[in-house]
Each structure stands twice: as C-alpha cells, then as structure tokens.
Simulated scan of single mutants.
Amino acid sequence: MPKCKEDLVLIDQPAQLIAERVAASSATQPLVRRVGGALIDAATALTGGNGDEPGANERFLLDCLRLMVSTPALRARHLDSQYALQQAIVDALGDDATDPDAAFRAQAATSACMAAMHTALTRWTEDDGHTKLPDLITRALAASFGDDAVATYRKD
C-alpha cells in the first residue's frame, strides 16, 4: 500500500523483474550485455511487447514518467529508486562481495547501463512513446558501448 503520493507513481518498480533477468543471464557474457539485455527484456515485458498500438501498461508507464519528470519530489524519489535498482542489479550479478575489483566492475557497468536507459526513457517521453522503449534502450546501449554490446537484441 502506498505511504505517500510519490509511492503512487513509483509502485511496481521493475527492479525485481530486471534483477531476475540479470540473475538468469549467463555469467560468461560481458557485464554490459547481461545488464543491458535485462533492461531491454524488462522494457519489452513492461510495455507489452512488440505490438504497433501502445497498450494500457505502456501508456501508464509513459504517463508516470512524464509525471516524474515534471514533479521535483518525484524526481528525487525516482533517483532513490534508481539507486535501489542499481544495487538490486549488482546483487543479481552475483559477483563475489569479497572481491572489491569485481564489485567495482559490476557497479560501473550497471551504472553506465542505467545512464543509457535513462537517456532512452527521456527520449521516449519526449517523443510521446512513438518509438518503442526496448528499441530506444537498445540504441542507447549501442551508442554507449558499441553494437557488440547489444548484438543479440538489435533489430536493424
């Protein structure tokens, strides 16, 4: 149950879905591919997949993002939720917590992927959801890390 107005918009954060996708990914893949793939897969699931018409979930998510962008208190809460999402992803990667270098690499890769995702989310709201969110995330990840980072997800 929401405790405050900010919770109304931030309910059902996709953190668990993303963390599950990361945990299920092959540990032999590069970190960026594991995290980026999970972000793309979660966006596909949350926006209703590949249909041409936006679904109710997609419109709701788009409306929530617009509200977060335009409301200072929600932007602050969104940053908190992004930090929690980053930690959930790092935990799901399963890197040995006793190895500081592995933990650092996981945090850096996750943070960079989330920055690419944020850029895609911003673009998605600006173009009113006309471009599919998974495609924008794929493009942002490719722009940041090269096509090899998202080779299995490219649809071009």
Score class of each variant (00 low, 15 high):
A115P: 00
A103K: 13
H118D: 02
D91R: 13
R77K: 13
D101P: 02
G55F: 09
M114W: 06
D63R: 09
A97M: 06
N57W: 07
D99E: 08
D52G: 10
L67E: 15
L62A: 04
L85N: 01
S111K: 03
C113T: 04
L65G: 02
E53W: 06
G48S: 09
M117H: 00
P54S: 06
S70H: 11
A108E: 14
P54M: 12
A84T: 11
R77W: 03
W124K: 01
G48H: 07
A102Q: 03
Q86F: 01
A76K: 14
D52L: 14
A106F: 05
N57L: 09
R75D: 03
A76C: 09
P72S: 09
H78W: 15
A92I: 03
G49P: 06
Q86S: 12
A73D: 12
A92T: 06
L79W: 08
A116K: 00
P72H: 10
C113E: 01
D80H: 09
D96C: 13
T119P: 00
A103G: 08
A120I: 00
D101T: 13
R66D: 07
D96T: 14
Q87K: 15
W124P: 02
A112H: 04
R66M: 09
A76T: 13
I89E: 00
L93Q: 04
T98F: 13
T71M: 10
A92E: 03
Q82L: 11
R123A: 08
D80A: 12
L62C: 04
L121H: 05
A76L: 15
A116F: 04
A56N: 09
D63G: 06
Q87G: 00
L93Y: 04
V69T: 04
E58R: 10
F104P: 00
A103Y: 10
L79S: 15
A102T: 11
A109G: 04
G49S: 09
A108S: 15
T71G: 06
L93T: 02
D95K: 06
N50V: 14
S70P: 01
D95S: 09
M68Q: 03
R105A: 11
A106I: 05
C64W: 05
P100C: 08
D101I: 14
L62H: 07
H118G: 00
F60T: 07
T119S: 10
A56S: 14
R123N: 01
T98A: 11
D96Y: 09
T47N: 07
N57V: 02
G55T: 15
A109W: 02
W124Q: 01
A88S: 13
A56D: 13
R66K: 15
W124V: 00
L121Q: 07
A92K: 07
G55W: 08
P72I: 08
A106D: 04
R75L: 11
D63V: 03
D101C: 08
T71R: 03
D96H: 10
G48Y: 06
F104T: 08
R123K: 11
L79R: 15
H118T: 06
Q107K: 10
P100E: 14
A102P: 02
L67A: 07
G49A: 11
E53M: 05
D101V: 14
D52C: 12
G55V: 13
D91Y: 07
L62R: 12
